[in-house]
C-alpha cells in the first residue's frame, strides 16, 4: 500500500506516493529527481543528505517519507535565488571549498542552517556544527574558512 503525501519543496507544492519504508531521501532523489541531496551512508553519519525540514536541519536519510506530510522541505536545489547564488555558494566557489563536490550540497545546507541561527559563529562553533558532515577531500580547512568569510560578509550587509 502506498501512501499519498503532500508537502512543500523549495517553496513549491509537491505530492508523491511512497511505501512506508521509503526514506525522504529516496523520494527526493528517485521520485522527485532532486538528486542534489546525496546518499553517502543512509545511516545519519555523513550529512551528505542534509536538508532543512520545517526550519530544522535534518538528515533526509533518517526521515521517513510519510513523515513529510504537510511539512516544508528545503534542499540544495532551492538554495540559489534565481540566478543569484546564495553567498555561501558564491564563497565556496571563490574559496575552493570543494574538491570532488559530493559533500558540498550537505555542507552548504548545514552551513546555511547555522548562519540562520547564528551569524557570528566562532571557528569552534562552525567546526562543531559541521561535525556531522563528512568530507574526505579537503581536510575541512577551506570549508570552515569559507563559512566564516560568508558570515562576516553577511554581517556587514
Amino acid at each position: 500500500m502506498k501512501t499519498h503525501i503532500t508537502t512543500t519543496v523549495n517553496g513549491e507544492p509537491e505530492e508523491f506516493l511512497c511505501e512506508t519504508e521509503q526514506t525522504l531521501l529516496d523520494i527526493l532523489r528517485d521520485e522527485l529527481n532532486l538528486t542534489g541531496s546525496k546518499e553517502g551512508c543512509s545511516s545519519g553519519d555523513c550529512g551528505a543528505c542534509s536538508i532543512i525540514l520545517n526550519g530544522r536541519l535534518v538528515c533526509a536519510c533518517l526521515v521517513l517519507a510519510v513523515e513529510a506530510e504537510g511539512q516544508k522541505i528545503e534542499t540544495i536545489e532551492g538554495m540559489a535565488d534565481g540566478e543569484e547564488l546564495h553567498p555561501l555558494q558564491k564563497n565556496f566557489l571563490k574559496d575552493a571549498a570543494l574538491q570532488c563536490g559530493i559533500c558540498t550540497p550537505g555542507f552548504l545546507i548545514a552551513a546555511k542552517a547555522l548562519l540562520e541561527k547564528n551569524l557570528n559563529p566562532t571557528e569552534k562553533e562552525v567546526r562543531y556544527w559541521l561535525a556531522g558532515n563528512l568530507c574526505r577531500c579537503t581536510g575541512y580547512d577551506k570549508i570552515i574558512r569559507s563559512v566564516l568569510n560568508t558570515a562576516e560578509e553577511m554581517r556587514r550587509k
Binding site: 532523489r29 528517485d30 534542499t75 536545489e77 555558494q89 571563490k94 558540498t104
Partner: peptide, 23 residues
C-alpha cells in the same frame, strides 16, 4: 591564479550528476 572552477556552479547547486544520480 585562483580562478573559479568551470564545474563549480554545477557542484554548489546540486546539478552535477554523480554516479548514483544517473537513471
Amino acid at each position: 591564479t585562483r580562478a573559479v572552477r568551470p564545474d563549480g556552479v554545477e557542484k554548489v547547486t546540486g546539478r552535477a550528476k554523480f554516479g548514483a544520480d544517473f537513471s
